[in-house]
Amino acid sequence: MDDELETLLRRHYRRAADDIHATRDLIERSQATGRAAGPHRRGSWLRRWTVPAVAAAVTVAVIVAVTMILWPAPERPRPIAPPPSPRPVPASEPPLPTSKGTPAPPTARPGRPSSLPVAPPSVRPGDKHGPKPGEVVIPKPVDSSAPPGVPPTAGTPPTAKPSKPRRSPGR
């Protein structure tokens, strides 16, 4: 059945092909099309890509120009100022300690919370718990008017503002 069908199809196409002929006009038109499309390929390539390349260059230039105009100017770096203090700080005040065990100045500026422990102003010679190298010095209250029953608050400088109320040990 398939062989018969295949033979029929081949015969059909051969017979139909006898009625289809390429005219002289079609051949000439096709040859002219080829001549128009073929010879100057390089020129056509140049023409094909000139406009997109120029368009891309102009787009990039416009984007760069707009970016340069509209981009906000960078702010000048300003030094971080300390928060306003109630009293003027003397110019001769030494800087705050930055490392452990370094003796701190006798007074700290009020209103400046600091988690760093501040060393006591001086160590008495008879004190057997004097600061050792590398040890965190726990400040002691300088105020002698404090009640004798109240122990000093550990880890809080005498004049520093406590971050949160602490309970006295033993309670």
């Binding site: 289809i20 002929h21 051949i27 096709s30 040859q31 080829g34 001549r35 073929g38």
Partner: peptide, 18 residues
């Protein structure tokens, strides 16, 4: 190219028509 067109136009036209 011109010779190629002249030689193949008939065959290719029939293919296109079919």
């Amino acid at each position: 190219f011109e010779e190629f067109v002249a030689a193949t136009a008939g065959r290719l036209l029939r293919t296109a028509v079919f």
